[in-house]
Design a protein around this nucleic acid. Structure first.
Lengths: 247, 247
DNA sequence: CGATAAATTGAGTTTTGTCAATAAAGGTGG
DNA sequence: CCACCTTTATTGACAAAACTCAATTTATCG
């Protein structure tokens, strides 16, 4: 590292475009690409063009306080969103898998209210607010907003009501459910986030995360080694997780 | 109580209208009424008419799962929003004071994602989504959405990172700030919610809430008796509260 | 004026966090 | 390709915070 060892990590804008100009329906995310849904609603094809890029691990998609100009869809890989407190500490708000939409909290304010960073090599599609204000507002935004609120309600529920076992079980069960939903194996996947990130998200220290996972393994619920996870008893996990929000 | 002792508590719709037909700008909430802001944006006066009612203590404004058709503005009094988990337990999501807007999480979905109930005699103004889709979308909703998200981010931060002292100090400091903002005394006010509600909101049992308040009182930070609160050292309280979200 | 509900206080237990040591994995440069 | 270094994760011993259970006390509402 010659000279400058604190060059800022690259943001979305500094990454070369992968498929510039291609129509967004070439992107075959499960559930349909956001852009193709937009085009359906507007009755116009080709109105919105894709703007997707591949980011390496640990690269910011957007940063708190930066200009909020777009929504971002995860095409592959994974992302964590987080905020930084006044005293400089991080709080993880969520993890995003392929098909998930990021950046909604920039909609209202001109500045981003949170940051997002890739957890591994990740392909991201950007959709500028400006390009979708008409259709987005009436049809797409409301759904995204309620998804986002539901997600946060569940986190609040988890943080306020559950013990360490319940939190971890909820977390793993939710990941499993989501992987399954997008066509991946729900009972065996790689954790793209560190124990530190998991603990931060769940309001636990990493030692508690580690010990709880070990205990889950000892009781035959699952097998875990570093980032590799295999769930053996999804039902038991759901039972330990306890109640979710009912919406 | 002759006969039926489980009649459902009244919802907004069953309460007689107070000022039906009056223009909304008669409502002088600090910061301006939502409806008057709408009218400004649309350039039309008298488009939206007020629909405000007075509810007694413990009456639901809307309920999770019910039809989501409107936003509600607190004119006076106070409200708590909450959700009910699959296993029937309640989670308090927030408290709303005069000027605060409720019901945003109904925007996306057709059904309400949370419930809201009055904590005391409360005057509520209802604004139907249908009456404000045009202007609301472009100008008013985004601001409300980012407010709502900011509110929830702060709660997540509090639940995940703070101990009992930090949570209570944050809670009281936030209430103080908000009362002050709407022109009430920030250092002496009535807590309209029970210890149970406070504990539920903060992820603590009521005994911990009670003990922590007693300890705050013993150290001269404040004086509290039942629902009556007087804050003596707001700065110290803010210090104990620690960092907030920085947006 | 009692009855019921809400809040406080105390004692003891459980859970989770803290501190410290170790182990395993991944990356780097020889 | 291997040794070394750094980062990440695990494990143990102990301390601290919060919870549970139980007993009072204090309001509030018929």
């Amino acid at each position: 590292m010659p000279g400058n060892d604190c060059s800022p990590p690259p943001d979305f804008d500094s990454i070369p475009v992968t498929a510039s100009g291609a129509l967004c329906h070439v992107c075959d995310i499960v559930g349909g690409c956001l852009a193709s849904r937009m085009m359906e609603y507007s009755g116009q094809v080709g109105l919105v063009r894709s703007n997707s890029r591949v980011l390496g691990q640990g690269e910011n998609i957007f940063r708190e306080g930066g200009e909020a100009s777009a929504l971002y869809v995860v095409r592959s890989g994974s992302v964590k969103s987080y905020l930084v407190t006044e005293d400089g500490e991080e709080q993880v708000l969520g993890f995003y898998l392929p098909g998930d939409v990021l950046g909604l909290d920039g909609l209202g304010s001109s500045a981003c209210m949170s940051s997002a960073i890739t957890l591994e090599t990740t392909s991201i599609c950007r959709m500028l607010f400006a390009q979708m204000s008409e259709q987005g507002c009436g049809r797409v935004y409301p759904k995204l907003i309620s998804d986002q609120l539901a997600r946060e309600h569940n986190l609040i529920l988890m943080l306020a009501r559950k013990d360490a076992d319940g939190k971890l079980a909820s977390f793993l069960w939710d990941l499993s459910r989501r992987f399954k939903q997008i066509g991946y194996a729900g009972n065996a996947f790689k954790l793209s986030m560190s124990r530190q990130d998991i603990g931060n998200y769940l309001g636990l220290v990493i030692e508690t995360v580690s010990r709880t996972l070990t205990r889950f393994q000892e009781s035959g619920l699952l097998e875990v080694s570093r980032r590799t996870l295999e769930i053996h008893d999804l039902e038991a996990l759901k039972h330990i997780a306890g109640g979710q929000a009912s919406h």
